[in-house]
Design a binder for these strands. Structure first.
Lengths: 213, 213
DNA sequence: TCAAAAAGTAAGTAAGTACTCACTTATCTT
DNA sequence: AAGATAAGTGAGTACTTACTTACTTTTTGA
């Protein structure tokens, strides 16, 4: 096991220390899960005593919840549709789906710790799962679903349940990320750039739902 | 927390008891992970003392490994391509992909405990992940990959990297299962039968990779 | 400058933890 | 019926866990 010290052993302002403990704990929880991480490990890795950890957080559960809240509410994890609005207006299907996938893949790659945290939380049945889902995922289903519905009315896409289309597409890139993060870290099965992956996924999906002439 | 007793408190044959403990522990590990499950819980749920658990398994780690081995090597978890061979020979693309997805979706639904165990093992970095991947997943990539390559040569599919196609398709149904098991158990976002899901996924994928005339 | 507020901790506690040992009880064989 | 064998356990051990208390050290602001 690798010990992980952030420097700055000197006295810190309360807020700073709090944030530092959160950062450290986040890393440890994402690696070992809730019950797999001890308050002792968190203290040591933060360079303080356990007593100090409990000065800032009433108990382990609260620390965990604070991390999840902090993460779920922060804008670290970007809305994958933020860069896609203009393409949706124009009806540029490829750019919509390509950028959605690329954006997501990049986020996942950058923030694997959060991905792992989400998985741990889901397995442990933590409330964050619901929060994250309701505030984040369902909004994507809605907005992309609406886009697909519109394009169907315009005669561009054939008549499939938009929700199934969204699930199919999200499945492609989320599963790809999970492969890279969890199951096939060395990418033995498939090594491919995010750009190429996004391109392939978008192309397959679009050809899969477009009307033929 | 729900207590879970298998009946039969009476004395059992050694093999039987061993199997029973494995079953019980499997359920608990799949729910709470390795470090989230105590040997005490396993003993109580099995209706024996902790000492008995340790009579059958040298330590907790060995019990865990035995479960994983047992599961990974058993044929509980069916090869999703077993029912698909004849369709591959005939070149019936739809039946190949439809049955592959349907078979997988049914397995996942029946054996959510194993799915959860796999996720826990992956997050914990357990060796099972590699075993399962190398013996199970990579064989699917190979066989389906070969099928796609053949159909490309026959001029039926356009020229995409077969591995990317496999990843896209597996992504669709694995992600769908993970949604149902982990993130959206009440299926608020998308409630759909396995048959309908398999049909949609297969159709989208195939139209996505078929050559247009 | 100096007291009050804030940061930090050594040294605990009580309840768990994985795991062991010496022992009892049931079943099987002859 | 009786000894051998196998199933099972009560009561521990040594250690870890989350969390507390009473205390010290540093910083701050009037």
């Amino acid at each position: 096991m690798i010990k992980f010290h952030e420097q700055a052993n000197s006295r810190m302002a309360g807020d700073e220390r709090r944030q530092q403990i959160i950062r450290v704990a986040m890393k440890l929880f994402s690696e070992h899960g809730f019950s797999g991480t001890t308050t002792r490990q968190i203290a040591v890795a933060s360079g303080v005593s356990e007593a100090t950890v409990f000065k800032y957080f009433a108990n382990k559960e609260e620390l965990y919840a604070d991390i999840l809240d902090h993460k779920a509410c922060s804008h670290d994890f970007q809305d994958p549709l933020s860069l896609v609005g203009e393409y949706m207006e124009k009806g540029d299907d490829y750019q919509v789906f390509y950028n959605m996938a690329l954006n997501a893949l990049r986020n996942h790659e950058e923030d694997t710790a959060f991905m792992r945290l989400l998985m741990h939380a889901a397995l442990e049945g933590h409330e964050l799962t619901r929060m994250f889902f309701e505030s984040f995922v369902s909004s994507i289903y809605e907005r992309i679903g609406n886009y697909i519905r519109r394009r169907q009315k315009e005669g561009a896409f054939r008549d499939v349940d938009p929700k199934v289309v969204v699930r199919s597409f999200i499945g492609m890139f989320v599963h790809h990320s999970l492969n890279n993060i969890l199951w096939d870290k060395e990418q033995k099965l498939l090594k491919i750039s995010n750009e190429k992956a996004a391109e392939s996924f978008a192309t397959i999906l679009l050809d899969g739902i477009r009307k033929k002439d």
